[in-house]
């Protein structure tokens, strides 16, 4: 291993090396991710695209520590997550990673504000500070006035915005979004992407998407195409990552 590799590991938001994920399904085994090696720098706005079954969601789950690799190594901010205990992984997710899911996954009994402040509550941030930070993000993202509504009283686009606020409110290094626009119409998708671009630019948060939505691919500054669990192409375009 040379010096450059060690430096990349320590400074990259994400680095994977020869990562494999194999699921045992009855008699056969499914190779969902096959030897993926990639580096994602802090501040990148990356889309991992591919048809269903291409391994993009599994790769996202591996990076987020929701599932463990069968082989290979994964570093998030220079920390080897395969070596972490479940407790350490939970801590890392709480403090360094935000998740956005296709089905929004807000807690139905909590209001929009309570949902958004939930990670801060788990981090032990006091009530005044929690409200201040959440309200600031609601203001910034055009959601002011909807704080007290429950998810059932919000549109799909609004619910996903709350999920984005929940993902970034703890100021994570990395936001992992799995098909965030798949349930939204064009206008809501565009608005959501505007919001995420703005947060990426202003806060420097790294965004990684798993998607098959052409709009997300168009607007990402780096597009990684996956086919059958392996990287087929990796192209960068537009500006450099936000630092």
């Amino acid at each position: 291993m040379n010096v450059t590799n060690i430096n990349e590991r320590n400074t990259a938001a994400v680095r994977t090396e020869e990562v494999w994920k194999i699921f045992e399904q009855e008699a056969e085994e499914v190779q969902a991710v096959r030897g993926v090696t990639l580096v994602i720098e802090p501040g990148e706005f990356v889309a991992m695209a591919g048809p269903s079954g291409s391994g993009k969601t599994t790769l996202l789950n591996l990076i987020g520590g929701l599932t463990r690799p069968s082989r290979g190594e994964i570093w998030v901010e220079g920390r080897d997550i395969a070596a972490m205990s479940n407790r350490e992984l939970a801590r890392m997710r709480l403090e360094r990673i935000g998740f956005i899911f296709q089905a929004y996954n807000l807690l139905p009994v909590l209001t929009a504000l309570e949902n958004a402040e939930f990670p801060l509550l788990l981090q032990g941030v006091n009530g005044g500070e929690r409200h201040r930070r959440v309200r600031e993000l609601f203001e910034r993202t055009g959601m002011a006035g909807l704080e007290d509504r429950r998810p059932g009283k919000l549109s799909g686009g609004q619910q996903q915005r709350v999920a984005v606020i929940r993902a970034v409110v703890g100021e994570p290094a990395l936001v992992l979004a799995d098909e965030p626009t798949a349930n939204l119409d064009r206008a809501a998708s565009d608005a959501l992407l505007d919001m995420m671009e703005e947060l990426n630019r202003d806060l420097g948060t790294t965004f990684v998407f798993a998607t098959h939505d052409p709009r997300v691919m168009e607007r990402s500054r780096r597009l990684i195409r996956l086919v059958d669990g392996a990287i087929e192409s990796d192209e960068r375009r537009g500006s450099e990552p936000v630092r």
Binding site: R87, A90, R93, L94, N105, P119, L122
Partner: peptide, 16 residues
């Protein structure tokens, strides 16, 4: 199951 999965994705430890 989904709700408990979500809590763990957000940072709940299995013990919590």
């Amino acid at each position: 199951k989904r709700e408990f999965g979500l809590l763990q994705a957000l940072g709940f430890t299995p013990r919590q």
